[in-house]
Design a binder for these strands. Structure first.
Lengths: 333, 333
DNA sequence: CTGTTAGCGCGTTCAC
DNA sequence: GTGAACGCGCTAACAG
């Protein structure tokens, strides 16, 4: 690939002149400018971001570390993150921690070597992440949804406890009292918060919740399917279920359908996340919708402000999620 | 962030010694090695990949350009691409063309500046992409699923025409003859190939296909929903539908359910892509499954071989998709 | 076994 | 309006 030097030589000017016509950083006679531009085009010269980065000590790159990018919720989040970053002239290095604390650590190391300008961290919650605290050194971090204990970084979230509370309220207001909760693994903070909101709503409504009404399963459609399977096999079935993610809820809907249980006729279901598929589930899923796009936008904006040297105290930005009522919930009988 | 020079100074050795202990690139006395390693740890020194890249003329980074990363099919593909790349020591820069030829061009430019080692190109098909031909200069490209006309690059695909043929055969073998086809926009090559396979299967079976039996809609669940809406409102309804993507099929299933049409009792539906949601649709969707993981693996392997200087003639790697029979298809009456 | 040195491609003084 | 020269952090070829 052509270099600036070659361009300069070919155009019969100095390297610095070429640099200046490229960056419009000082006056250049029209004649020289045209000539240089011509050569650049002719030689298909493309400036090297890596040399530039070395000089300027910034890469215009931000790392995005998520548990699993193929999960629709994260996929949608990433899409908006990418979008917002691109608007502001940044690129995304996509990193899937994918469960392994090991892979996550490897990625963090690589990101540091790459000298990313900032990091978007969507913590899985399996808190092996303390390694971060040591390494992040002055690399601005924005956390999405979940604050790592002790990591001094800004945070953007859409109150999960509050959202779960709201979803549960919806069911209670429809007259339901026998409400089960299907949650992801108990050790994930994301699960814990949502279950917390559920419990608070129930408590406030004066409804006792036996332990048996809360099922902890894998954070997948398969998990939801299994949970509904056992729930619906009971002698006394709940009349409604709050499921802490749409992915699980959709699995549950599938199980209900096979079991011949009508939703919402016999069973109301409300999910969480408002992934694209929720709208076309059978029946269309009532769910809590976090403002994914806004979260991404704010996260990137805040991160870039930090990158540009903002030294304000840490910010926690909390957004509200909204209940989207579709067809999977109905008044009790 | 600490630099190699500082480490060397602090350890009382030369810069090159530090370099060599880091890269294990020549013998270093145990004593010195330990000392240097100690300082490195103490100073939290992390080598700079950008300086290294400048020197070595490679970045260990590959660009991934897709139409829309939040589409579950692409999201799943990306996840496997990321996985395969990571295994081989490469990172991913994620780029959403997202429709705009403009954004795509901007990204390509940026990727060239970043000096990516290779590019994974999942062409949207809207062939504004000819700009590529000019710029890609010696940057190895691997195309997924669709070959850009005239771009001299390797290709990995899972025969779409063949897959569509197979899906249609499945319906025909179940006894269906009134089979409609719901396709994405007619101008997308992806759509055209799949419709082609459908038509071939029908023709081979001696079944005439009036134009009215092929609906072209948006490549989304909403599109599928709309298509099924109009299909099911007809006086004479098809008994089966081949839908060229699961996303559309799921939208269709939703429409069928609202219309009170039983699937597969009154209507068989087969999709394409085998996205995660297909398995938990209501009913679980019969669909063609491209070997996404294998495609990603092969694509990355081939790309990296090119990066390492492989100069064999261009390769077209074609893989077979497999039919996954679930519960959305049944014998005719 | 270790140190010195010359670039990699670019931005940026400083001098003309 | 233009050019020469230094250095960003690192690797590698060349001495010792």
């Amino acid at each position: 690939m052509a270099t600036m030097k070659q361009v300069a030589q070919r155009a019969g000017v100095s390297i610095s002149t070429v640099s200046h016509v490229i960056n419009n950083t000082r006056a250049v006679s029209d004649e020289v400018r045209k000539r240089v531009l011509g050569i650049i085009d002719e030689m298909r010269y493309v400036p090297s971001a890596v040399a530039r980065s070395l000089k300027n000590d910034k890469t215009n790159t931000i790392g995005v570390l998520v548990p699993n990018s193929s999960n629709p919720y994260f996929a949608e989040l990433i899409r908006w993150i990418e979008d917002a970053a691109f608007e502001l002239g940044y690129h995304i290095i996509l990193c899937n921690a994918h469960g392994g604390a090991q892979k996550q650590a490897a990625y963090l190391r690589l990101l540091m070597e790459k000298r990313i300008d900032g990091l978007v961290l969507v913590a899985s919650g399996a808190d092996e992440d303390h390694d971060l605290l040591q390494r992040h050194e002055s690399v601005p971090i924005i956390q999405l949804e979940r604050a790592l204990p002790g990591l001094g970084a800004d945070l953007v979230l859409a109150g999960q406890e509050e959202g779960a509370w709201q979803a549960t309220r919806h069911l209670i207001e429809l007259g339901h009292r026998d409400i089960a909760c299907v949650s992801g693994p108990a050790d994930l903070p994301r699960s814990r918060e949502r279950v917390g909101g559920f419990l608070r709503a129930m408590r406030e409504a004066g409804i006792a919740v036996p332990d048996s009404e809360i099922l902890y399963v894998e954070f997948t459609s398969a998990g939801g399917h299994a949970a509904f399977g056992s729930l619906l096999a009971r002698a006394r079935r709940p009349t409604a279920v709050f499921v802490t993610s749409d992915l699980m809820a959709i699995g549950g809907l599938c199980a209900a359908s096979s079991a011949g249980v009508r939703v919402p006729g016999e069973l109301s279901v409300v999910g969480y996340d408002d992934i694209g598929a929720a709208c076309y589930a059978t029946p269309p899923l009532t769910t809590m919708a976090p403002p994914k796009r806004e979260m991404a936008r704010l996260a990137i904006a805040q991160l870039i402000e930090r990158i540009r040297g903002g030294h304000e105290p840490l910010r926690n930005i909390a957004l509200a999620s909204s209940l989207v009522v579709r067809a999977s919930t109905a008044p009790l009988h």
